[in-house]
C-alpha cells in the first residue's frame, strides 16, 4: 500500500493524489485540495520549489515550505 509522504520528499513522477493540505487560501484557490490529482513535472535544487501539473491541465509552482506540508499518495 502506498504510504503518505510529503510532496517535497516524494521521489516519483507517477501521478499523485493529495491526501492533506495545510490551511492556505491561495493553495485552495489554485485548485490544490484533498483529492486533487497532481504530478510533479520538475523539482528544483537548493530549496527551490516543486513544479506541479494539476489535474493534468495547468502548472503551479509550490514553494518548499508549502510543499513540505502537502501530503500525497501515489494514485493507482
Amino acid at each position: 500500500m502506498p504510504t503518505p509522504t510529503n510532496l517535497y520528499n516524494i521521489k516519483t513522477t507517477t501521478p499523485l493524489q493529495v491526501i492533506s493540505v495545510p490551511k492556505n487560501e491561495l493553495l485552495e484557490n489554485m485548485g490544490i485540495r484533498i483529492g486533487t490529482y497532481i504530478s510533479i513535472k520538475t523539482r528544483y535544487k537548493l530549496g527551490g520549489p516543486v513544479l506541479l501539473s494539476v489535474e493534468d491541465s495547468y502548472a503551479v509552482a509550490v514553494g518548499k515550505d508549502i510543499a513540505e506540508q502537502i501530503f500525497v499518495k501515489e494514485s493507482a
Binding site: 528544483y44 535544487k45 537548493l46 530549496g47 527551490g48 520549489p49 513544479l51 509552482a61 514553494g63 518548499k64
Partner: peptide, 19 residues
C-alpha cells in the same frame, strides 16, 4: 517572467524574498 521566478526561487529565498 513567472518562469524566471520559478527558476530562481531558491536564490531569492536565501535573500529574504521569494521567486
Amino acid at each position: 517572467l513567472p518562469r524566471l521566478s520559478v527558476l530562481f526561487d531558491n536564490i531569492m529565498r536565501k535573500l529574504g524574498m521569494q521567486g
